[in-house]
Design a protein around this nucleic acid. Structure first.
Length: 479
RNA sequence: GGCGAGUUGGCGGAGUGGUUACGCAGCGGAUUGCAAAUCCGUGUACAGGAGUUCGAUUCUCCUACUCGCCUCCA
């Protein structure tokens, strides 16, 4: 039996993963609050758990995994954004949700099976809150409903804190209606200008945390396998989710395995607006950084280590992928060929790649395995290599391999540039033939200045590649 | 103050109780009119101290440093 090992935050150990029901492996990952473009850090958990999703499907079967990732579309940040922009909340959340889906698709993430929106689950949240009050785990006070942390003795177990410790360091909101300073809000009142729903406690809106508990329960049940998210959510978000869910459904244990990815940094520093190193996934894409490059860089660091996004890593990732695409292009890969190999049941990722991933999602190990496959270069390993790249979804378009490798102008579609370049190469070949190397080099330099790389092959032939810095206007000098 | 993660060769970054990845850069060589690309070769590093052990970079403890969370930022 193929085993997967995962590091469980709850036990702080790497454990053999055993599904509750191997016919339906269930995973919940905390999704974004939709009020703005996803920044690069938002992409990390999406990519990490996308790989886990793919691995689970590979091991347990495509139809035996249920992956849920929510959209939190009720939140005071959204309200603030609406107030300052004069737009409606619906406009903002709809637009941002679509942005998120587009950007995450660009970095190669499959859509989860369910992507519930919090506002569609308000009745379920109210019901859960009522249940918590009935069981004396929560209390209503001044239009608010609060969760009583002292009513759940395991509160703090996930993040390794005790209630007393936390109060000692107290940076919690002190409110007169709280019985304990750590008590957190399940429901809060809304004024006329703020979105609200009728409830037993008056018109109001849910607090943070409860939406995940309610949606996870609705879609995955009281007890499921994996719950994931960034480690900044460990406390208080996940701690509070556990408290709510376990108290609302005391017969269950909520999630068996908790997984947290480490944070992202940029050039060694925390990404922040004040440091000026803050950017979104869309910013990178717009700068011409391909989604596969972003994905590759993300996968090159283990998810439980801080991931440092640097210009150098971006460049190295680009180079490596170009090399790989070149190999695939050389071997004649295309979407038709992939279809054929799938039909012939010859589309299998390499065992070394899968076994690296089975070991707590060692994506870096998987990349190392890929490198080894390319260096061997036999017919067998190239197909395994290709299938492995596909498994990790590091190839965006199988019909654009040559182009992505920086070769093959023909697919760029600018015939005028092509003919100018071809003419220049012809002139250069003649210069080479007559031993006029000075002229030959001059032509090459001009081409390279325009972002066209010239490659001399055997037998006096020349080919060329268009670099990312290709500027057609500079070709005019060659006409 | 509390909690957690980490500290590996020039850089990035895995991993392991003994055989010491991999990538980039560097160096040497092959090839090439020159480049580029490619190929071959080349690097005993695991923060400091103590302990466990036949043996620790890998286990335990201590120290130093870095980073993150505790401010509804993944």
């Amino acid at each position: 039996m193929t085993t997967i090992k995962l590091h469980n935050t709850k036990t702080r150990k790497r454990e053999v993963f055993t599904p509750i029901d191997d016919q339906n492996v269930r995973m919940y990952v905390c999704g974004p609050t939709v009020y703005d473009r996803a920044h690069l850090g938002n992409a990390r958990p999406v990519i990490v758990f996308d790989v886990l999703n793919r691995l689970l499907r590979h091991v347990y079967g495509e139809d035996h995994v249920t992956y849920v990732r929510n959209f939190t579309d009720v939140d005071d940040k959204i309200n603030a954004r609406a107030a300052e922009s004069g737009r409606t909340i619906g406009e903002i959340t709809d637009e941002t949700t679509q942005w998120f889906l587009d950007d995450m698709a660009a970095v190669g993430a499959l859509e989860p099976d369910h992507m519930p929106r919090a506002t569609a689950y308000i009745p379920q949240m109210v019901e859960m809150i009522e249940g918590l009050i009935a069981k004396s785990h929560a209390y209503a006070a001044e239009g608010h409903v609060l969760f009583a942390v002292e009513s759940y003795k395991k509160y703090g177990a996930l993040s390794g804190r005790s209630i007393d410790d936390m109060i000692a360091g107290a940076r919690v909101e002190v409110a007169p209606y709280k019985r304990n300073p750590m008590d957190f809000v399940l429901w809060k009142p809304s004024d006329v200008a703020t979105p609200g729903w009728d409830s037993p406690w008056g018109r109001g809106r849910p607090g943070w945390h409860i939406e995940c508990s309610a949606m996870a329960y609705e879609l995955l049940g009281a007890h499921f396998d994996i719950h994931g998210g960034g480690n900044d959510l460990m406390f208080p978000h996940h701690e509070n989710e556990i408290a709510q869910s376990c108290c609302a459904h005391p017969e269950s244990e909520f999630a068996n395995v908790w997984m947290h990815n480490e944070m992202l940094q940029v050039e060694g520093k925390k990404m922040s607006k004040s440091l000026g190193n803050f950017f979104t996934v869309r910013d990178l894409l717009d700068q011409g950084v391909p989604g596969e490059v972003i994905r590759f860089v993300m996968l090159s660091t283990h998810y439980r280590k801080p991931m440092d996004w640097t210009e150098k890593k971006r460049e190295e990732a680009e180079k490596t992928l170009e090399k790989w695409y070149f190999r695939l292009a050389e071997a004649g890969y295309s979407s038709d060929m992939v279809k054929m190999l799938i039909a012939e049941n010859r589309w299998k990722p390499a065992e070394e790649v899968i076994s690296a991933l089975r070991d707590d999602l060692n994506t870096h190990g998987a990349i190392t395995a890929l490198r080894k496959l390319t260096s061997v270069g036999t017919a067998v390993s190239i197909s395994e290599f290709a299938a492995s790249l596909d498994f990790l979804n590091l190839v965006g378009d199988w019909d654009q391999l040559a182009l992505k490798a920086g070769i093959g102008v023909t697919s760029v579609g600018d015939n005028e540039s092509n003919s100018v370049i071809a003419n220049a190469l012809l002139n250069r070949q003649q210069a080479k033939k007559s031993k006029n190397f000075q002229e030959a080099d001059r032509i090459r330099e001009m081409l390279e200045d325009a972002g066209v790389k010239v490659i001399d092959g055997a037998g006096g032939t020349s080919s060329f590649e268009l670099g990312s810095d290709f500027e057609p206007a500079k070709l005019d000098a060659l006409k």
